[in-house]
């Protein structure tokens, strides 16, 4: 387990030295500031639309960062042959996967801190009423969700040969779940068997990313999510992370390295 931190640190350094995060952050900030500068009927302190746009951009950026950073980890190690000197050290393939997961997840967390800090500054500038605890909950839940996504993408990176196909599939799946995951049970109930059972099975099997999306609560100043459900959501995320990482380990264990 001692090898996890050095592996994670390499991923963090890679994120800091690549341009992806900076481009996305500047884009998010620029678009948010532009939208914030628009005058609507000479009315001041219109805040919610700006928060919605900013949070939407943050979510899109976080999905892109999580998926692109994770999808290239194992394939790049293979393609660049850095996997060989790495596995020649006293580290197992499972530990390499765990280390990569930890690094990608921490990288996502770091990005989220910066994005949400910007969001906080934007909110202060627009509205005097801000629920910082709720924002903290939103950040925590968002980070937990990205943990599932990183683990899922890591599994994809050992299953699919090309990072591009893995990234595309993960992006489509994650956006699909965010938009439709909550409603699959309603769709299932309107169908006849066996489609109903199949859709319901999918509904229970997929990781429900939308649970972690509390943007509406932040935008519309609804109260805090109770601590119990938040803790359960984090455990739910941890369970899916464990399942995906275990599956990745089982696949990676038997694979040829080149």
């Amino acid at each position: 387990m001692h090898s996890l931190w050095p592996l994670a640190l390499v991923v963090l350094k890679e994120l800091v030295r690549r341009k992806d995060f900076y481009v996305l952050f500047v884009l998010t900030a620029l678009l948010s500031v532009l939208m914030g500068s628009v005058n609507f009927f000479n009315t001041a302190q219109i805040a919610r639309y700006l928060k919605e746009i900013c949070l939407a951009l943050i979510w899109i950026s976080s999905l892109v960062i999580a998926i692109t950073t994770t999808a290239r980890q194992i394939p790049a190690e293979r393609e660049n042959r850095t996997i060989f000197p790495l596995l020649a050290k006293p580290v197992s393939r499972g530990q390499v996967l765990m280390g990569k997961f930890l690094g990608c997840w921490l990288a996502c967390g770091l990005c989220l801190l910066v994005f949400y800090a910007f969001f906080g500054v934007l909110s202060i500038g627009r509205s005097a009423e801000n629920n910082w605890l709720l924002l903290g909950q939103a950040l925590l839940l968002h980070w937990a969700m990205l943990g599932i996504l990183v683990a899922m993408t890591l599994l994809g990176s050992v299953v699919f040969a090309a990072p591009s196909s893995n990234g595309t599939i993960c992006f489509i799946v994650s956006v699909g779940i965010l938009l439709l995951g909550r409603h699959l049970n309603k769709v299932a109930l309107q169908l006849a068997e066996p489609a109903q059972s199949i859709i319901y099975a999918v509904y229970f099997a997929i990781p429900h990313f939308e649970i972690f999306d509390v943007r509406d609560l932040v935008i519309h100043h609804v109260g805090l999510v109770p601590a119990g459900p938040v803790a359960l959501a984090v455990l739910y995320a941890a369970a899916y992370v464990a399942v995906f990482l275990l599956a990745a380990r089982l696949v990676f264990r038997r694979q040829a390295l080149n």
Binding site: H2, S3, W5, P6, L7, L9, V10, K13, E14, R17, R18, N80, R81, T82, F84, P85, L86, A88, K89, P90, V91
Partner: peptide, 23 residues
């Protein structure tokens, strides 16, 4: 290894520190 490839975004010092951490 015969073909030596290492993380291009790291310095020599950082690579050695990385492997030292694993050891």
């Amino acid at each position: 290894p015969e073909l030596t490839y290492y993380y291009k975004f790291l310095t020599a010092e950082e690579i050695l520190r990385f492997y030292a951490g694993i050891f």
